[in-house]
Design a protein around this nucleic acid. Structure first.
Lengths: 227, 227
DNA sequence: CTACAGTATATTGTTGACAATATGCAACAG
DNA sequence: CTGTTGCATATTGTCAACAATATACTGTAG
């Protein structure tokens, strides 16, 4: 039988992959304007690269919903409305409730320690930088990211981490007027954390549901002020 | 101001798009073997098309999880294990429970009528073709498809219809030994349907959860026979 | 002045050739 | 006979030119 050997695990890093993640970051950071045209030629010359890989990168971002793509017309940075954000959060609640249930049951000790460390970091960051600076920043998601991975369900991880979270970050950067909920959210993280570490799936899911639902509700009340 | 006119709404159908859906169908139908190599050149010559569009199609399928892609090596038809299927179904339960809740609240009269018709069709098909032939076929998903769309949440629709369902169909075609649950499942559809038409979100979600969870459980007991 | 038509320009879609990488085969050392 | 080494082959990654489509502009009719 023919053994095929592959010394470095093929860390291939093709150009289109690299480019896609660069563009993704720029979109999330808001360095690329919401409706901005993403011309293949322009991007290509900017990165001194041919149009082929650029095309692939754009198509990939399109599949992930970070870019609006129209055939024969081209790609533009996706424009996210507050309604889009609400829809996103609605799905997120369901999935993260599932994630935290599974995490409470299946997380390894290592993972739990990691989560605890994350929380401690956030706590200290918070006390240093003040109320609002942290919870509108991408780092807030680290906590939820760790829980998603702790679920041990690859399908769930993929949807949350590769699909929903990036889009959510784009939403946040496009609507910076929306403030995080500061101390309250951090305390909620604490309750979730302790429920997980005690392996109480039911309680953890309940806390998570409240945590995310209240975030969504506050956004909703902002969009429909009175009723 | 410059009016730009676009008579046919740009039904562009680029080759890569067409090819992707053809390959998708062939994978779902099992005409392409699970681990089979998908060579760009081979596919290209088969459809009398250049490698460029073929690449794009394969990348798209890779993003959707129907194809395993390794840089510098190429694409193969995704090989789905029963564990993959369990993970898939676990996420599906959460999302469809959400979908049916929303559907019960927000479906239009038209949509409800459509769903009713679907159910009637399934009923008659069922009485003609016998117990098992229907519920392992793709048509079973039509019912769930309609509910997903009835949720009115585009994010949810995309994940269910473009991500989860195709993969689920691939799983089914790769494990044809797994039988549907026949009459029982059809009756469950009926209970869900009536809960929706009465706008009872709570009841609908409960029935949906039982419906899908029992499907998953029967698969699970098949994978771990005794405990 | 406005609305439309036709043309010019720019951008995307596709192709075939070339470069880089991985796979398969054969010869060789132990 | 086993395992390794090097070369030949095949496949993927990238590029630059060409074709098809959409956008922008200009001129003309009303």
């Amino acid at each position: 039988m023919n053994k095929t050997y592959r010394y470095p695990p093929t860390e291939s890093q093709e150009r289109s992959e690299v480019l896609a993640s660069i563009l993704c970051e720029e979109i999330i950071k808001g360095q690329l304007e919401p409706g901005e045209k993403l011309s293949e030629a322009t991007i290509g010359s900017r990165f001194e690269i041919s149009r082929g890989p650029v095309r692939e990168a754009l198509r990939r971002l399109s599949e992930r919903g970070l870019v609006d793509f129209v055939p024969n017309v081209g790609a533009r940075v996706a424009r996210m409305s507050l309604t889009d954000m609400l829809d996103l959060l609605e799905v997120r609640v369901s999935l993260e409730v599932l994630a935290v249930e599974l995490a409470a049951l299946k997380m390894t000790q290592e993972q739990k320690v990691h989560l605890e460390k994350l929380y401690q970091n956030h706590l200290s960051m918070f006390s240093v930088k003040g109320t609002h600076s942290y919870f509108q920043s991408p780092e807030d998601l680290d906590f939820h990211y760790a829980i998603a991975k702790g679920s041990g369900n690859p399908v769930l991880v993929k949807i949350l981490c590769e699909d929903l979270y990036p889009k959510l970050l784009v939403c946040r950067s496009q609507h910076q007027n929306i403030k995080g909920r500061g101390v309250k959210a951090l305390k909620e993280h604490q309750t979730i954390l302790s429920a997980i570490s005690e392996g109480d799936a039911e309680l953890a899911s309940m806390f998570m549901k409240r945590h995310l639902q209240s975030a969504r509700d506050s956004l909703k009340s902002l969009i429909e002020p009175s009723n």
